[in-house]
Nucleic acid binder design. Structure first.
Length: 648
RNA sequence: GCCACUUUAGCUCAGAUGGUAGAGCAACUGAUUCGUAAUCAGUAGGUCAGCGGUUCAAGUCCGCUUAUCGGCUCCA
C-alpha cells in the first residue's frame, strides 16, 4: 500500500501502482473524467502512470495551469499526427504548449501551407480526436530512438536526441503517430473537443537565426466548443480594440512612409491625450519631490563611450551624426541617463542634497530592427517618462517604496487594478557578469524585496533577469481583456555612477558614490498610450478624453447658442466644440458616438429659449435636460471625482 | 535582420483565366433647417506603393525596393 497526501493535507491509502485516474475514481467518477494529468511530488506526470511510492498528489484538470499545458501539448501531438497522415514525409521539429494553445514546427521541404491545407488539417484533427486514441508512453534506448528517426528521416528529432541522455528517453504514441517526447500527456485524444488552428508563421529551428526557417503552425484546443467560442470572441474583441485601428479611427496618431517607419506622428487629438497624461504624471512627480529637467535630443558620442552604451549598443544604434567642419560626432540620444548624470555633476553634492530626483519626459531614438516595429508599442522614436533618483545606498529602500507608491497611484488612477511586480535578481550561479560590489548588490536586492513586501505588492522573483548594472522591478499590468503588459520599471544602477564618477560629500566629510535609480511608471508615452487605448477600447475617462463635449445644434438656427455653450464650457476648462455641419441631428449624434466623445449636448429651440442643454452620454444615450450652467458644474464635478484619487 | 502574406481614392474594400479601374463612407457643391446612431442630388478624387523586366498589351505575370501585417530573433 502507498500513502497519498492530497493538497488539502488529507491522506489516504491505495494499492501500490495505482494511477492518478484510479485515485480520482475512488473520489468520484465525475472527477476522474476531468483529470488530465497528475502532479506527483511536484512533478507533472501522466494520469495513467502507476504511482509506486508514498507521494503528495494533486490531480490536474483543465482549471490548473499544468492541466491546460498538458492538454495543449497533447494537442500539438494530435496536430502532428494529422499533418503526417495528410502530408507524409513532413519533418517535425518541436511542438510545445504555449500560454494560449500550442504550436508545432514542421519542415515541409519547400512547400507552403495555405488556408485550404489548414482547414484540411483541422478536419483531420477533429476526426482523430473522435477516435479517442490513448497516448501511450514507452521508454526507449537512445540507439533505438535514433534508429527510429533515421528510418523516418527526421533530422530534427535526431538532433534533439543527440542532446539527450540515454536511459531517460521516452516516446509517446497516439494512433499512428509516434513522437520523441518527455510528456506528460492527457489520457486520450477524446478529451480534445474543440480545435482551431489559428496561425502559420516562420520560425527558426531552435530559435537561432542561423538555422533553417521552419513552418510553425499555431493552434488552440478546448475541452468544449463553448470555451473555444469564448476564446474566439475574445480574439475578435482584441482585434476591435487594437490600438492601431483605434488610433486611426479616433484620429490620435498616424505614420508616414515619408517620415520613416517606427516614427509616430501624433495628431491633435492624440497629442491632447498625451499632454493630459504627461501633466497628470508631472504634477504627481513634483508633489513627490521630483525636479523637472530638460536635455537636448543629441549628445556627444563621448558621453556614450563614458556610459558604456557605445560599446554595448553602438553598432546597433543609429549612426552618429557629425559636424561638417570639425567632424565631431553626436548620437541621437538612446536614453536620458547620461545627460542626467552630467546634471548631477554640474555642482558638488552633499549627502543633505540626496535623494536628488531629476525627471524629464525625454524623447529618445533607438534603432529597432525593421521586423520589430509594431504600432505604438515598438517604435524608433519615443518619449520616456524618465527620472533618475540619486541617493545614498541606505536610501534605496525608502526611495523604492516611494516609487512603488507613485507607480501604483498612476496605474490605479488610469483604471489598471490588476498588476504584479517582477523582481529581477542576479543569477545565483554566475555572478561574474554583474558589476558593482557584493555589498551594494545585497543592499539593493534586499531593499527591493523588502520594499515590495512592505507595499504589499504581488511579486514574482526571477533569478538571472537582473541587468548587468543592477537589480530591477518591473510592473506587469493586466488589461480589461486579461492580457498582460509590461509597463513601469524601476532599476537600480551601480554602473553609471561609477563610470561618470558621481560623488557626494558625506557627513564625515569623505567622498562617496551615490546609487542611481532609473524609473518610468508609464515606460514610454507611446507604449502606454497604446496599452491604455486597448484597455479602455478608446472610451477614455472624461478627464483624459481629447474632446470632452460636443455641442450639437438641431439646425444652424441654433448655431450661435451652441457657440455660447462652448464658450461657457471652455471658460470652465472643458474641452468642447460645435458640430456646425448642415446635417440632421441623428447623423451628428452617430458621428460623435463613433468618435467616442464622452458627452453630447443637443441644443434646439427649447434649450435655446431656456438656456438649457439636452445631455447625451456616450454609449448610454439621453440623460435629460439641464441648465447649461448646471451642466458645467455637473461635468466639472465628474472630472473632479475621476481625478479625486489623482492629484490632478 | 530572417520567413510568409499583403500594398488599388482620405478610410474600408471589389476588381477569375493579362485587353489601359469600381463601390460605400469621407470631401466638395447645391437643395433641405431637421429633436437623440447615417436627408437627397450632383461633382471631384487613383502614373493601381516605387523601380525595372516579360508581352502587341500589365492593377493582373516575373524580379528588386518601400511600407504594413503575422511570427522568429532582438529590445539600454
Amino acid at each position: 500500500m502507498i500513502q497519498i497526501t492530497f493538497p488539502d493535507g488529507a491522506q489516504r491509502s491505495y494499492s501500490k501502482g495505482s494511477s492518478a485516474i484510479d485515485i480520482a475514481k475512488s473520489i468520484s467518477e465525475g472527477l476522474a473524467r476531468k483529470v488530465l494529468a497528475a502532479e506527483v511530488d511536484g512533478e507533472i506526470i501522466d494520469a495513467m502512470r502507476p504511482i509506486n511510492n508514498d507521494a503528495h498528489l494533486k490531480l490536474l484538470t483543465w482549471d490548473d495551469k499544468g492541466g491546460k499545458s498538458t492538454f495543449w501539448h497533447s494537442s500539438a501531438h494530435l496536430l502532428a499526427e494529422a499533418i503526417e497522415s495528410i502530408f507524409p514525409g513532413t519533418k517535425f521539429g518541436i511542438g510545445p504548449a504555449i500560454d494560449n494553445g500550442f504550436y508545432y514546427d514542421i519542415d515541409l521541404g519547400g512547400a507552403a501551407f495555405g488556408e485550404e491545407e489548414i482547414a484540411k488539417i483541422e478536419k483531420k484533427m477533429k476526426e482523430l480526436a473522435g477516435q479517442k486514441n490513448q497516448y501511450l508512453r514507452k521508454e526507449v534506448a537512445k540507439t533505438d530512438a535514433i534508429e527510429y528517426f533515421t528510418q523516418k528521416e527526421d533530422p530534427y528529432k535526431i538532433e534533439l536526441l543527440e542532446g539527450l541522455e540515454d536511459g531517460k528517453i521516452t516516446f509517446y504514441s497516439q494512433g499512428a503517430f509516434t513522437d520523441l517526447c518527455r510528456g506528460p500527456h492527457i489520457p486520450n485524444t477524446g478529451f480534445i473537443k474543440a480545435i482551431k488552428l489559428t496561425n502559420i508563421a516562420g520560425a527558426y529551428w531552435r530559435g537561432n537565426e542561423k538555422n533553417k526557417m521552419l513552418t510553425r503552425v499555431y493552434g488552440i484546443t478546448y475541452p468544449s466548443q463553448k470555451e473555444l467560442d469564448d476564446y474566439l470572441l475574445l480574439l475578435e474583441e482584441a482585434k476591435k480594440r487594437d490600438h492601431r485601428k483605434l488610433g486611426k479611427e479616433l484620429e490620435l496618431f498616424t505614420f508616414s512612409e515619408k517620415v520613416g517607419s517606427g516614427l509616430p506622428l501624433w495628431l491633435p487629438k492624440g497629442a491632447m491625450l498625451r499632454e493630459r497624461l504627461q501633466q497628470f504624471l508631472q504634477k504627481a512627480q513634483i508633489e513627490s519631490g521630483y525636479l523637472p529637467v530638460i536635455t537636448p535630443h543629441i549628445g556627444s558620442k563621448q558621453l556614450y563611450v563614458t556610459s558604456g552604451h557605445w560599446d554595448k549598443y553602438g553598432k546597433d544604434s543609429f549612426r552618429p551624426i557629425t559636424t561638417p567642419n570639425e567632424g565631431e560626432e553626436f548620437m541621437l540620444k538612446p536614453m536620458n541617463c547620461p545627460h542626467h548624470c552630467e546634471i548631477y555633476k554640474s555642482s558638488p553634492r552633499s549627502y543633505k542634497d540626496l535623494p536628488l530626483r531629476l525627471a524629464e519626459f525625454g524623447t529618445v531614438y533607438r534603432y529597432e530592427q525593421s521586423g520589430e516595429l509594431h504600432g505604438l508599442t515598438r517604435v524608433r522614436g519615443f518619449t520616456q517618462d524618465d527620472a533618475h533618483l540619486f541617493c545614498r545606498p541606505e536610501q534605496v529602500k525608502e526611495e523604492f517604496k516611494k516609487v512603488i507608491d507613485l507607480v501604483m497611484y498612476v496605474f490605479t488612477s488610469l483604471d489598471f487594478h490588476d498588476f504584479t511586480a517582477q523582481i529581477s535578481l542576479r543569477d545565483q550561479e554566475d555572478r561574474s557578469k554583474y558589476i558593482g560590489s557584493e555589498e551594494n548588490w545585497l543592499i539593493a536586492e534586499n531593499s527591493i524585496i523588502e520594499a515590495a513586501a512592505e507595499k504589499g505588492l504581488n511579486t514574482v522573483v526571477e533569478y538571472g533577469e537582473a541587468a548587468f548594472y543592477g537589480p530591477k522591478l518591473d510592473f506587469m499590468v493586466k488589461d480589461a481583456l486579461g492580457r498582460s503588459w509590461q509597463l513601469g520599471t524601476i532599476q537600480v544602477d551601480y554602473n553609471l555612477p561609477e563610470r561618470f564618477e558621481l560623488e557626494y560629500v558625506d557627513a564625515d566629510n569623505t567622498k562617496k558614490r551615490p546609487v542611481m535609480i532609473h524609473r518610468a511608471p508609464f515606460g514610454s508615452m507611446e507604449r502606454f498610450t497604446a496599452v491604455l487605448l486597448e484597455h479602455c477600447a478608446g472610451n477614455f475617462p472624461v478627464w483624459l478624453a481629447p474632446e470632452q463635449v460636443k455641442v450639437l445644434p438641431i439646425s444652424d438656427k441654433f448655431g450661435d447658442y451652441a457657440l455660447e455653450v462652448v464658450k461657457l464650457l471652455k471658460a470652465a476648462d472643458i474641452r468642447a466644440s460645435v458640430d456646425d455641419r448642415q446635417e440632421k441631428i441623428g447623423k451628428k449624434i452617430r458621428d460623435t458616438e463613433l468618435m467616442k466623445t464622452p458627452y453630447m449636448l443637443i441644443v434646439g429651440e427649447k434649450e435655446m429659449n431656456e438656456q438649457k442643454v439636452a445631455v447625451r452620454k456616450h454609449g448610454e444615450g439621453d440623460q435629460g435636460v439641464m441648465l447649461n450652467t448646471e451642466f458645467v458644474i455637473f461635468l466639472t464635478n465628474i472630472i473632479k471625482e475621476q481625478t479625486a484619487g489623482t492629484k490632478n
